[in-house]
Computed example of a mutant assay.
Amino acid sequence: MEHLLNKRVLNIEISGIRKFSNMVSGVEDMISLTIGQPDFQTPPHVKQAGIAAIEQDFTTYTHNAGYLELRNAANNFVKHKYNLEYDPEKEVIVTVGASEAIDVSLRTILAEGSEVILPGPIYPGYEPIIRMTGGVPVHVDTRDSQFKLTAEKIEPYLTDKTRCIILPYPSNPTGVSLTEHDLKDIAKLLKGKDIFVIADEIYSELVYENKHYSIATDLRDQTIIINGLSKSHSMTGWRIGFLFAPENISKHILKVHQYNVSCVSSISQMAALEALTNGYNDAEPMRIEYVKRRDFVCERLTKMGLEYVKPDGAFYFFVKIPEKYQMPSFDFAVDLAHTNKVAVVPGSAFSKFGEGYFRLSYACSMEKLSEGLNRLENYLKN
């Protein structure tokens, strides 16, 4: 019966990140620097709020867009953090993680043949959804611009079929961000055009040298912002995302969301309310620790003679594989894992423009990180 299935689904592959992580999981003594999941625990007060929600019988359906109190809190959060403001009743949707927000946004705005411009390399969660809608992903090579999708890079790819630009910054897999100047230039290029911007800002609380700036500040009417609590509050399993968009866009996205999931877990929503109110700055201790780890990894990679762009957000390094290794990035990662028991993600998982690199996640303890880097160094020497 497989031949009867949707061909667009049949042609989609499992994420290269998951494929490789699954391959090395369970291997004895393996140091895994693969999955982008914070190694911190969900803050205790947030967990207690979830427990209280169960005990107080917050166990029924909520409004499709989420509890209004939570939507208010989400608006207040982005208002005070990033100088953005949305109507909680009409312009904020609570989603099942940022992943569902990406899905319902793309399914709402794309039609058959719509082109979507994305930076390459890029997280693999966008392209399959674009293709399932009948859209066409258009990757722009950012390897010579420090992995930044700038206005100068975007302009040559604009056509009458361009429907959307995806700006996933801070970036997975590179850890780089766009500056306020970069984003203002993009806004100037796109303003007034029939083009949406999806700004995936899930790592907005994990920005190191500069304060996070959103393109919605300058291009609100065309922008859909995606955010959530997975990275900022170490709540990956709670599956809480947020979508912010003007009413004339969000009211249609809400329809897709409604028929997709009805609503987000009521328990998770109550925990999220606690996270956004009493846990307003919960990300700060994690951010400080990530900076220490980043600087440690910078020092180690530099001593190994490896090339990389210093990340200024998220918790990843995208490292160039030395030219002497005449093998695809997937084979390099397999060989590294097999011989030295340290796992990194092959760059090919992040589009063809990731080939020749590997992603290293520093969302793990310093002890584990140090041992993993020792093993990497031994591999390069031997």
Score class of each variant (00 low, 15 high):
residue 1 M to E: 11
residue 2 E to C: 10
residue 4 L to P: 02
residue 6 N to C: 12
residue 9 V to L: 15
residue 11 N to K: 14
residue 18 R to C: 02
residue 22 N to K: 08
residue 22 N to V: 01
residue 23 M to F: 09
residue 25 S to Y: 10
residue 28 E to H: 04
residue 29 D to C: 00
residue 33 L to K: 02
residue 44 P to M: 06
residue 54 I to N: 03
residue 60 T to E: 09
residue 61 Y to R: 12
residue 62 T to R: 09
residue 67 Y to S: 12
residue 68 L to D: 11
residue 73 A to F: 08
residue 74 A to Y: 03
residue 75 N to G: 10
residue 80 H to A: 11
residue 85 E to I: 08
residue 86 Y to T: 08
residue 89 E to C: 00
residue 93 I to C: 07
residue 96 V to Y: 11
residue 98 A to S: 15
residue 99 S to Q: 14
residue 100 E to M: 12
residue 109 I to F: 13
residue 111 A to C: 10
residue 114 S to L: 08
residue 120 G to H: 12
residue 125 G to Y: 06
residue 125 G to A: 10
residue 129 I to Q: 12
residue 135 G to H: 08
residue 136 V to N: 11
residue 137 P to V: 09
residue 138 V to A: 09
residue 145 S to L: 04
residue 148 K to Q: 13
residue 151 A to K: 10
residue 152 E to N: 11
residue 155 E to A: 14
residue 156 P to E: 05
residue 156 P to R: 05
residue 157 Y to W: 10
residue 177 S to M: 14
residue 177 S to F: 09
residue 178 L to R: 02
residue 181 H to P: 00
residue 185 D to W: 00
residue 189 L to P: 03
residue 191 K to F: 00
residue 193 K to A: 08
residue 198 I to Y: 03
residue 199 A to Y: 15
residue 205 E to P: 01
residue 209 E to Q: 13
residue 211 K to D: 14
residue 212 H to A: 05
residue 219 L to V: 02
residue 219 L to E: 02
residue 221 D to M: 06
residue 223 T to C: 05
residue 223 T to P: 09
residue 224 I to V: 15
residue 231 K to Y: 13
residue 232 S to K: 10
residue 235 M to G: 01
residue 235 M to T: 08
residue 239 R to K: 15
residue 242 F to H: 12
residue 243 L to Q: 09
residue 246 P to I: 06
residue 248 N to R: 13
residue 250 S to G: 05
residue 251 K to V: 10
residue 251 K to F: 08
residue 258 Q to R: 13
residue 263 C to H: 15
residue 263 C to N: 15
residue 264 V to T: 15
residue 266 S to D: 13
residue 266 S to F: 12
residue 266 S to M: 07
residue 267 I to Q: 03
residue 269 Q to I: 11
residue 269 Q to A: 12
residue 273 L to I: 07
residue 279 G to V: 03
residue 287 R to V: 03
residue 288 I to C: 03
residue 289 E to K: 15
residue 290 Y to D: 02
residue 292 K to I: 04
residue 293 R to W: 05
residue 295 D to N: 04
residue 296 F to W: 07
residue 299 E to P: 00
residue 302 T to S: 15
residue 302 T to Q: 14
residue 303 K to F: 07
residue 304 M to Q: 11
residue 304 M to P: 05
residue 305 G to C: 10
residue 305 G to I: 13
residue 308 Y to C: 09
residue 310 K to Y: 01
residue 314 A to T: 06
residue 315 F to P: 01
residue 318 F to Y: 13
residue 322 P to Y: 07
residue 323 E to F: 02
residue 327 M to R: 05
residue 340 N to K: 12
residue 341 K to V: 02
residue 344 V to W: 00
residue 345 V to W: 00
residue 348 S to Q: 10
residue 351 S to I: 06
residue 352 K to H: 10
residue 354 G to W: 07
residue 365 S to M: 09
residue 375 R to V: 06
residue 378 N to F: 06
